[in-house]
Amino acid sequence: MRWWCSAQNTAWTWGWRPYPGVWLFVIAVGFAIWHWNRVGARRAGNPPEPLHPLSVLGLLVLWLALDWPIGALGAGYLASIHMLQFQLIALIAAPFLLRGISRDALALLRDESAIARLVKRLTAPLPALVTLNVSVLLTHIPGIVDSLMATQIGSFLIDIVWLLGGLIFWWPIVVSVPERPRFVPALQIGYLVLGLMFSPVMFGVSAFLVYSQHPLFGTYELAPPIGALTSKNDHVIAGLLMSVGGSVIAFIALSKIFFDWSKREG
């Protein structure tokens, strides 16, 4: 039995396969949020709050992205599904998971501990913007993808990098601690536009996927074919998904920021 999805040299079948590592990982993430909230509530002397519904939704999206069939298809068969995984993990699950961290839990980060200082530095807008884009770049370099996706640990590593990159990127938008009074809504909108809509890295990767003469990733070019989709068209869809998907998610998020801002001001 395999614990995590990775590229396999077998033809795709729609027969369900269990990936217990995925279940344990999603449970661990949920437990971490729940435990953090519980510790925060105890310190604050408040009763523990249940997990925020959006946080539960984030866990559900994370599980869908990592488990069969999306996880298995993305790990070894279709670059387009691999890209969908990226979007689900880094751009959808990550902000939802952050919504599940309670105020009391976040209050734990207001001290001057090493963890609090690290979080503050990493989640400052510029480092966060750079972190996401560097993680996107590194996890889409053909040599790295082809090497890592061949093993379960390598595939796991890519998924972790995406999740961490997404959490760090969304932190200054979703989480209010540490306070950043100068990171006003207008700047938040600019941050999303630059980070997702017009990110040079995302545009670059997307353009390579769409316009390269031959498929970039050997993992997907040499994977047992599924249906009539050619590997080149699969790569084109992946590129479009990166470009369009990122823009759509950014548009939804910046719209919410804009309307919340308008409501407050007006």
């Binding site: 003469q213 031959h214 498929p215 070019e221 040499l222 080149k232």
Partner: peptide, 10 residues
């Protein structure tokens, strides 16, 4: 052999 990529054919 199997594993030959389009880049190699090209």
């Amino acid at each position: 052999p199997f594993g030959t990529r389009q880049d190699d054919w090209a």
